[in-house]
């Protein structure tokens, strides 16, 4: 973007992050404030380096849950960046996004939404409508809408994010499963259980294909095993069937993403709701054994 963060600032940033990670805020904060004073003396207040330093200090305040103080700094940084880098610079989008996150943490979803929306518009303009960073922004926007109960918007944003991830990163990217999971919770909140179930099964089938190859008679996704077990128990053929290894799913689970584990839990809860206790038990057993 025509502006590089100076090495000295980068080093200081790394140092501050280390102190903050250790909870040593009493060291991190004065370090930031001193650097801020030095920068202001040499470059003046309205300089991109000052904005960067304000962002670093805001991060430390965020980690201490001092959201108001952090937002105050980011507003200052935003105004500096807009005037020095231009209104449509990616750094402006990032600052807007983080301001929205801070508002979100304080439950101020309505105030956060327009900031997130503007960050999205900047990213679309600068990166193009199909860039993964656009999808990332859509995810945050969806979550803000979800917290306000605006489910139509949530579905729209998640669907768009999903299409971008599938097209740009491929169907096996972790972001695809994550976004499907989020979309499914939006469906659940509206009582759209069938739609949620379809997505959960897609995630688990995808995880299966990734781990074991194509689905066939010997290699079936865990939810197929679960439903077959349910069927058997209903026809009283397999009342006391032990939990078998289900094609190695327990072991596969151990290595897979937290999203798959969450999906197993959520589909399990959905089965339980439908009274499919054996199917639910099968998925929950899989989660437990994978630990």
């Amino acid at each position: 973007g025509g502006y590089e963060i100076p090495t000295r600032l980068r080093t200081l940033h790394n140092l501050v992050i280390q102190y903050a990670a250790q909870g040593r805020y009493e060291v991190a904060v004065p370090l930031c404030k001193q650097a801020l004073e030095d920068l202001e003396r040499t470059s003046g207040h309205r300089h991109p380096d000052v904005a960067t330093m304000l962002n670093i200090l805001a991060l430390v305040y965020r980690d201490q849950n001092k959201y108001k103080e952090a937002a105050h700094l980011l507003n200052d940084a935003l105004s500096i960046r807009e005037s020095t880098l231009g209104r449509d610079h990616p750094a402006v989008a990032a600052t807007l996004n983080n301001l929205a996150v801070l508002y979100g943490k304080r439950g101020k979803y309505k105030e956060a939404e327009p900031l997130c929306q503007r960050a999205l518009e900047i990213r679309e303009k600068v990166l193009g409508a199909r860039h993964p960073d656009v999808a990332k922004q859509l995810n945050n926007l969806a979550l803000l809408c979800q917290n306000q109960g605006n489910y139509d918007a949530v579905e729209r944003y998640y669907r768009r994010a999903l299409a971008i991830y599938e097209e740009q990163l491929g169907p096996d990217d972790v972001n695809v499963a994550r976004t499907k999971n989020n979309l499914a919770s939006c469906y659940l909140k509206q009582g759209k259980f069938t739609e949620a179930e379809v997505l959960y099964k897609e995630i688990l089938t995808r995880a299966h294909v990734q781990e074991f190859g194509p689905v066939n008679g010997d290699h079936k996704p865990i939810w197929v095993h679960a439903e077959e077990r349910e069927e058997r128990s209903r026809s009283r053929l397999g009342d006391s069937m032990p939990y078998v290894e289900y094609g190695g799913w327990y072991r596969a689970c151990r290595g897979s993403s937290p999203t798959v584990t969450t999906t197993l839990r959520n589909l399990g809860a959905l089965y339980r709701r439908q009274g499919k206790m054996e199917a639910a038990d099968t998925l929950e057993e899989c989660v437990l054994r994978s630990w």
């Binding site: 963060i5 989008a93 999203t259 809860a269």
Partner: peptide, 20 residues
């Protein structure tokens, strides 16, 4: 289980704000 459902949903901070 509502908690499980929501476990992964967190607003994401953009760290790139430090790298411009």
């Amino acid at each position: 289980d509502q908690q499980n459902v929501n476990r992964q949903q967190q607003l994401e901070w953009d760290d790139s704000t430090l790298s411009y």
